[in-house]
């Protein structure tokens, strides 16, 4: 998952706070609307619980809380991005999931020391497309417990 990949990246772009993030499409299974979440006691604060995703019990992570942002009530725009990494499948709550983008390889830069408010360790790189700045998430780190 490093920016050394030469080919263009196809990513899902989503919003968290005021910033735009991106996750390579190969990790994304689907994007779901908010739905009832069953709390699972005794888990990390950012694990909101589990949902019934078409018969599969899927854990849900609130990305805002994962990154230590202030939590906001979920709204019309809130989405759950179902992401899979190796044998782990989770849902990630984001403020909004906007679109699918093609990022040319040359637009991707290694992460600066500190970007926005997310700790650099969760970041794989940043991409500048036209006027937008996209933060590429390192899913493995996000899922690291």
């Amino acid at each position: 998952m490093m920016a050394s990949v030469q080919a263009d990246w196809k990513v899902i772009a989503f919003r968290l706070k005021e910033e735009e993030y991106a996750l390579p499409v190969q990790y994304v299974r689907s994007i779901e609307k908010m739905q009832p979440i069953t709390r699972v006691p005794g888990t990390a604060h950012y694990v909101k619980g589990v949902i019934n995703l078409r018969g599969v019990v899927t854990p849900i992570i609130d990305l805002r809380e994962r990154f230590g942002f202030a939590s906001e009530p979920y709204g019309e725009q809130t989405r759950i991005i179902i992401a899979a990494f190796e044998d782990i499948e989770v849902g990630l709550i984001v403020d909004a999931a906007n679109d699918v983008l093609d990022l040319p390889a040359e637009s991707i830069e290694p992460p600066p020391e500190a970007i926005g408010s997310v700790e650099a360790s969760y970041i794989d790189g940043v991409a500048k497309v036209e006027n937008r700045l996209l933060i590429l998430l390192d899913l493995a780190k996000v899922l690291d417990r």
Partner: peptide
């Protein structure tokens, strides 16, 4: 199962 991400939750054996 709760999935691989939540592998061991105290006093919960599944869902």
């Amino acid at each position: 199962s709760l999935g691989n991400y939540l592998s061991s939750v105290f006093a919960i054996s599944g869902a």
